[in-house]
Amino acid sequence: MAIGTLDAPMTPEQRQEIMPKEVPHTLRLYLEGKIEQFWFRADTGPIFLMNAESVEEAKAIVDDMPLVTGGLMKYQLWPVGPLAPLGLLIQGR
């Protein structure tokens, strides 16, 4: 999971300049399968369920996003995976 947080509210000028780059970039990542699902929280920002082999790969992906390269946003990354204890419920495991 990647949870984005703006460093400060964007000015209308910043929004007009960067969002036409950020939105297509996010859409490309979704279509490439790097972002599987996404949500938005008004108090923090975007939340992405990512498809990456490692936290390092996920970090490289979000670090290349226009809001991050523009110095406006940071992401906190949390590795998540299948709920492994459910396997205990399957007989023979």
Score class of each variant (00 low, 15 high):
1 M>K: 14
1 M>Q: 13
1 M>V: 11
1 M>S: 11
2 A>D: 05
5 T>K: 15
5 T>F: 15
6 L>P: 10
6 L>K: 09
7 D>I: 11
8 A>D: 14
8 A>G: 06
8 A>E: 15
8 A>L: 12
11 T>D: 12
11 T>S: 15
12 P>I: 12
12 P>E: 14
13 E>C: 04
15 R>L: 13
15 R>K: 12
16 Q>W: 04
17 E>C: 06
17 E>I: 02
20 P>D: 14
21 K>V: 01
21 K>P: 00
21 K>D: 12
21 K>H: 14
24 P>K: 02
25 H>N: 04
25 H>A: 08
27 L>D: 09
28 R>N: 12
30 Y>Q: 11
31 L>K: 12
31 L>Y: 03
32 E>W: 03
32 E>I: 01
33 G>C: 13
34 K>C: 12
34 K>A: 08
36 E>Q: 12
37 Q>K: 11
38 F>L: 08
41 R>K: 14
45 G>N: 11
46 P>F: 02
46 P>L: 05
46 P>V: 03
46 P>K: 01
46 P>H: 01
46 P>Q: 10
47 I>S: 08
47 I>V: 15
48 F>S: 07
48 F>K: 01
48 F>G: 07
49 L>R: 12
52 A>V: 01
53 E>W: 04
54 S>E: 13
56 E>L: 04
56 E>T: 11
58 A>Y: 03
59 K>Q: 13
61 I>G: 00
62 V>P: 02
62 V>A: 00
63 D>T: 05
64 D>H: 03
66 P>E: 14
67 L>K: 13
67 L>S: 04
69 T>M: 13
69 T>Y: 09
70 G>F: 07
73 M>Q: 14
74 K>F: 03
75 Y>D: 09
75 Y>H: 05
75 Y>I: 06
75 Y>S: 01
76 Q>M: 09
76 Q>S: 11
77 L>W: 05
78 W>D: 00
78 W>V: 05
79 P>E: 08
80 V>Q: 07
82 P>T: 11
82 P>D: 15
82 P>E: 10
82 P>S: 15
84 A>K: 07
84 A>F: 09
84 A>C: 01
85 P>H: 06
85 P>S: 08
86 L>E: 07
87 G>K: 13
87 G>T: 09
88 L>E: 08
88 L>N: 04
89 L>M: 14
89 L>H: 03
89 L>Q: 10
90 I>F: 01
90 I>N: 06
91 Q>Y: 00
92 G>L: 02
92 G>C: 06
92 G>F: 09
93 R>P: 00
93 R>V: 01
